[in-house]
Design a protein around this nucleic acid. Structure first.
Length: 634
RNA sequence: GCCAAUAUAGCUCAGCUGGUAGAGCAACGGUUUCGUAAACCGUAGGUCGGGGGUUCGAGUCCCCCUGUUGGCUCCA
């Protein structure tokens, strides 16, 4: 007998060799039904796995991340099986689960068509109905390679050859289909209740442009039909919020064929951009930042000195002036370095915080451009902080506080990642450790949880990234703080220490919004275009019932504008319902209906986009209400 | 950049196997002066992304170019 402890701390004896699935059944039939995989002493396993020793066992369902992964991974095998049944000559590459579903890469001469997807789905439904059991087996390396050669799967052979010497080489069989796979998998294909193939795409073998382009099919699956529908509804919801669609409908920005990746901001989009920038300036001034502006075009020598010529040339644009070579800046830092060097700093002057809303241009591959999210020119809300080593922790805390303050105002929650030294890095391990310790100390002192991204830092220093979460649960990397040893060295930055000698300052490089353009894109989708009053390009629209109220409305317009309210008038000869509909579609926070009654009482009838008809109010009361709302940024 | 899909009026889209373009909304003109999500009538609007080819004839078929969309990172 062996002793099995479950996650609630209770334990029970079972006979040796019992499987996880049987344990789940003994706990409850419901759990047996929902069980997808299990964890034995922290190690993820199939339910079919027998246990021989006393163990701590946790049964995983679809509610657990690892349970989902197993579920999706099995669905990807079902898809591959269906493809092999329909097209026996197609070669299999890889088919993992991902954050939302799964994919499988296939090598096929003839790309899949949408009709093929339908027949694959139909075949998958058959495989699910057959309720094939999944069995795991292991083979020694040579046999595994031979086996895959025999069944004609060259990509699998390559994968096995690249596995480390000590790794267990496992396979999963379901009916006639066998695939190399580490697992775990759910016990039978019949457990997959609802699935859908979502998209087709090309993908390089092993993600490298040097390799062959394979055909990838993405899909998703759920234990309940309802969950699948909810997921598809969420995708629809995301589509409705698409900033490219809303950007056009709300007349905020456009990207024209004449400038791929170079956004045009319309007057209303510009209002939004200016509000964000004004807010940024105000908050930075309060925190001891100075603002600078450096040129967009600077000569080749500068970019050689900064290292960009060697490390970033592929992403840069160039031009000639007279006989000299120039580059259009992809980053603001070299310009900032020059401004630091304009004069001598004493240790008493530091830290120096130089902010710049700098327009940078970067050559992005044409295929990656995406609305405002991925562009070829954008405004970075950059700042470089030059300081003494002992300032590092406090300065970083200052930036963390600032990021926190900003994101909370927009209603974003966020998580933090700390990235450490990459393979190809400049500087010594000692320098890196000091820097990482400083970043960590700042995070710890601030009591922040963070994930470590081993080896994901910039080549010149470690970094803290802020990933914000929007209202429909997607995450976006925006803010970042990077410690940089390289630039101060390359530009020979100095300050005069208490000892009268020159010393090298430490520098950090940070952004809060990241790219203002991208941040606007995120805001549009986060709010679904329904901006809070402080951000709304038009805060109020005045609607006349008949043209008898036109003069009164024009008077209101002046009064509102004097109080800094952004407004529009709709004096057209249209019915009030029609005007309200249009104002609502434009997502304007307040609609003020003005007819004979309001003129007579010197009032306005307030309709809020959020709360509907609020009834008549005195004009001053309304102004106080909206101004308060704007002030509180609600 | 690569793979695939796609490009028709300001927007959303129709146009079957080739026979010289159509709807709704928007716009504009007129009528209606109306109380909280679409009044009525009418008018105008497109060298069908660009170039080349096949054909008696091309929005439709073929080739090239450009833009757009979804992917190409998440390692069996």
């Amino acid at each position: 007998m062996i002793k099995i402890t479950t996650k609630d701390g209770s334990y029970q004896d079972y006979s040796k060799g019992i499987t996880l699935g049987e344990i789940a059944s003994s706990i409850s039939p419901g759990l047996a039904r929902e069980a997808m995989a299990g964890k034995v002493n922290g190690e993820i396993m199939d339910l079919m796995q027998p246990i021989y020793n006393d163990s701590l066992v946790n049964i995983l369902t679809f509610e657990d991340l690892e349970g989902k992964k197993a579920y999706w991974h099995t669905t990807s095998h079902i898809m591959a099986q269906a493809v092999k049944r329909l097209y026996p000559d197609i070669k299999l590459a890889i088919g993992p689960s991902i954050d939302n579903g799964f994919y499988y890469d296939f090598d096929t001469e003839k790309p899949f068509t949408p009709e093929d997807m339908e027949s694959i789905e139909a075949e998958m439904a058959k495989i699910i109905k057959e309720d094939l059991k999944l069995e795991r087996f292991e083979l020694p390396r040579e046999e595994a390679i031979k086996y895959m050669q025999e069944i004609g799967e060259p990509y699998k052979v390559e994968l096995i050859e690249d596995l480390p010497d000590d790794s267990v080489i496992s396979f999963y069989r379901q009916g006639e289909f066998v695939d190399l796979c580490a697992g775990p998998h759910i016990p039978a294909t019949g457990k997959v209740k609802a699935f859908k193939l979502l998209s087709l795409a090309g993908a390089y073998w092993r993600g490298s442009e040097a390799n062959k382009m394979l055909q990838r099919i993405y899909g998703i699956s759920f234990p309940k039909k309802k969950q699948l529908n909810e997921y598809l509804d969420r995708l629809e919801e995301a589509k409705k919020r698409d900033h490219r669609k809303l950007g056009r409908e709300l007349d905020l920005f456009s990207i024209l064929d004449e400038g791929p990746g170079f956004p045009f901001f319309h007057p209303k989009g510009m209002v939004l951009k200016n509000i964000l920038e004004d807010f940024w300036r105000t908050e930075h001034t309060k925190r001891g930042y100075e603002e600078i502006q450096t040129p967009i075009i600077l000569n080749k020598d500068l970019w050689t000195r900064s290292g960009h010529w060697d490390h970033y040339k592929e992403n840069m644009y160039f031009t000639n002036i007279d006989d000299g070579e120039y580059a259009i800046k992809p980053m603001n830092c070299p310009g900032s370095m020059l401004l630091y060097k304009r004069k001598m700093f004493s240790y008493r002057d530091l830290p120096v915080r130089m902010g710049e809303l700098g327009l940078v241009h970067r050559h992005e591959l044409s295929g990656v451009l995406h609305g405002l999210m991925r562009v070829r020119c954008f405004t970075q809300d950059d700042a470089h902080i030059f300081m003494l080593p002992q300032h590092i922790k406090d300065e970083i805390i200052g930036v963390i506080d600032l990021v926190d303050y900003f994101y909370k105002i927009f209603g974003f929650s966020y998580h933090v990642e700390l990235s450490t030294k990459p393979e190809k890095a400049m500087g010594t391990d000692e320098e890196w450790n000091t820097a990482i310790d400083a970043l960590r100390a700042a995070l710890d002192e601030r009591g922040m949880e963070y994930k470590i991204n081993e080896g994901d830092g910039a080549f010149y220093g470690p970094k803290i990234d802020f990933h914000l979460k929007d209202s429909i649960g997607r995450t976006w990397q925006c803010g970042t703080i990077q410690l940089d040893f390289q630039m101060p060295e390359r530009f020979d930055l100095t300050y005069i220490g208490a000892d009268g000698e020159k010393h090298r300052p430490v520098m950090i490089h940070r952004v809060i919004f990241g790219s203002i353009e991208r941040f606007i894109g995120i805001l549009i989708e986060h709010y679904a275009g329904v901006f809070p009053a402080w951000l709304a390009p038009v805060q109020v629209r005045l609607l006349s019932i008949t043209d008898r109220s036109a003069e009164y409305i024009k008077g209101l317009k002046k009064m509102f504008e004097d109080r800094g309210i952004r407004l529009e008038m709709d004096l057209r000869n249209e019915k009030i319902g029609y005007k309200i509909r249009e104002a609502r579609l434009q997502k304007i926070p307040y609609m003020l209906v003005v007819g004979d009654r309001e003129v007579e009482n010197q009032q306005v009838a307030v309709r809020s986009r959020k709360d509907g008809d609020l009834g008549a109010m005195n004009v001053d009361d309304f102004l106080d209400k909206i101004q308060n709302e704007i002030l509180e940024k609600k």
